[in-house]
Design a protein around this nucleic acid. Structure first.
Lengths: 221, 221
DNA sequence: CGGGAGATTGAGCCCCGTCAAAAACAGTGG
DNA sequence: CCACTGTTTTTGACGGGGCTCAATCTCCCG
């Protein structure tokens, strides 16, 4: 499962990816980006870690998207965060009920931790920014309307993709719904409403064109 | 504002507390509890830190309760966390939009951080547990019903107070509401409902007796 | 062309928010 | 001890935003 050489690749479930490693996103610049570690690949829906398995490593997205979620025993689910190329995740402490999964085809680089699990300075900052992100998301999920949540989501995705005009939504509607604490139906209806107001357009179900960034921003402040 | 000697106390807004430092809660045991640092006192509603002022220190609650919250410009508010005696908070990075305030009369001990803001091993674990708590709270706020949120809140408060039978609620209903992403009215109505079902009783508005811990627990799993 | 997953749309309803008022409570001063 | 005042809590009536259930449509991919 872990890989030895620099160029090797571990194929989980020995599936062929056809050689293409999608590169829709611009990786965030970070001191970790350069380190050319071996890739571990996951197919859509595959588990990266679960409540039981919590490794000694963090994960950096090379390509694709990962989701971190937790589920109630009756199936209700919350997606805590999506992680896009360049981003580092996996700070959830052992024993916490979270799972991480590949949303779509995903390549990860492992960042091993020291034996005592202590985080170096820069990783510590990343961990604290995850805390801030989770807390800010509480405000969105707890106190904003459906249209405000979608607007905030689009703006956030645009910012993280460094494209505010054309935004990829590389996850199904139900994942967006579970991230924003809505239903897939409501996500659809709000998208439709934004389209009818000429704030956005869809070139496909997974790709949005932002027509009026200002009006979108105005929805959330 | 900061204090020098071990026994001195800085009275913010030179208010007299009548000598009593309420001790309703059992402080969490931690290596930090013993360190007898000077207390800083806050009166109800007073700001501990805001988006602009983010110190080089963490805070440990000596007595009272603190809340961390963020507010939209139209007044909608979310309380991210309450902090009870013994608990350490203040990990929010500089520039994040959070405020911390005293819910009621509050005594804090400052834990200064090194110049580079790095966290020692144990503090790092606390920070990561804050991340896990925020993420678990996302599931509560996003996917659970009003009655489930209240039940989860009561159970959590009982656990943190190390009393599962009689639980103090040292904050007003509107704070509970903003913590659970409800309205004060709904909080009231759910309490009433739980009382009518004989799961809880109120000796006063701020003190609950749990009649059936099992039935309460059953509401959330 | 057929099959299946995801996306979209519609109809109806319910939980919880809104608005308003009453009641309980805590101080404060007489 | 009690009247007075402001705050918090509680209760009621009502409406709406988003959920549920179900059908249809679109898009892949074989």
């Amino acid at each position: 499962m872990l890989i030895e050489t620099d160029t090797s690749v571990s194929w989980r479930h020995e599936q062929d990816w056809g050689g293409q490693q999608p590169n829709h996103f611009v990786g965030a610049t970070s001191t970790f980006t350069g380190t050319s570690r071996p890739l571990t690949l996951y197919e859509a829906g595959e588990e990266i870690f679960g409540p039981a398995s919590r490794g000694q490593a963090l994960f950096q997205v090379a390509f694709g998207v990962a989701r971190v979620c937790s589920v109630l025993n009756d199936g209700r689910r919350t997606i805590t965060a999506f992680h896009l190329p360049g981003e580092i995740f996996g700070f959830e402490p052992a024993g916490s009920p979270f799972r991480a999964e590949a949303v779509e085809g995903l390549g990860l680089r492992m960042l091993p931790l020291p034996r005592d699990r202590s985080l170096a300075g820069e990783l510590q900052q990343v961990a604290l920014s995850r805390l801030a992100a989770a807390q800010e998301h509480l405000l969105v999920v707890g106190r904003q309307t459906a249209i405000e949540r979608i607007a905030a989501f689009l703006i956030d995705m645009g910012r993280r993709q460094k494209r505010s005009d054309v935004i990829d939504l590389p996850m199904p509607r139900c994942d967006i719904a579970d991230y924003l604490a809505l239903t897939p139906e409501t996500v659809c209806r709000v998208f439709k409403q934004l389209r009818e107001r000429h704030l956005i357009d869809f070139t496909s179900a997974r790709r949005v064109t932002v027509r009026s960034q200002g009006a979108l921003q105005a929805l959330i402040d």
